[in-house]
């Protein structure tokens, strides 16, 4: 779409301001009107700490059906080139849907209490 140069400048300024979301930004430094001028900034908000149980994935058992990828409400299952790579725990809230929709005969995902992983710093598995 054709943008006036004036508009382009405004947009540029606002995008620069918001690259790092500054929690203490004053009103002069925020884009106007409450707009979030960037896409997908929620990826900077980790919801993984809501989790009390954690999905553990078995690469060996996985038949790559992608039902976990599809039915995960938190977009946590990673698929690359059509292959499930594992679960990104940054956003996983531990709902357990993935383990439930994994075909019963396959049983590639099990939910385990988060306490079992207390000292585990790894966020990606698989």
């Amino acid at each position: 779409m054709t943008l006036s140069s004036q508009t382009k400048n405004l947009l540029k300024v606002h995008q620069q301001v918001n690259v790092n979301i500054e929690p203490n930004a004053g009103w002069r430094d925020l884009p106007i009107g409450g707009v979030i001028p960037q896409a997908g900034t929620a990826t900077q908000f980790a919801t993984g700490d809501w989790r009390t149980i954690r999905p553990v994935w078995s690469k060996e058992k996985c038949i790559n059906c992608h039902r976990c990828w599809l039915y995960c409400p938190d977009m946590s299952w990673i698929s690359e080139n059509g292959q499930i790579q594992g679960v990104d725990l940054t956003y996983c809230k531990g709902c357990g849907i993935c383990a439930n929709v994994c075909p019963a005969k396959v049983h590639a995902i099990e939910m385990h209490p988060e306490d079992n992983f207390k000292d585990d710093e790894v966020v990606k598995e698989g």
Binding site: M1, S4, Q6, L11, G33, G34, V35, I36, Q38
Partner: peptide, 21 residues
């Protein structure tokens, strides 16, 4: 010409208007 700094139809620059603040 009309000026609005955050046009929704500029789909190359996705933006969210009217969020919860």
């Amino acid at each position: 010409e009309y000026h609005f700094p955050y046009p929704l139809l500029d789909v190359e620059h996705p933006k969210t208007l009217g969020p919860l603040a």
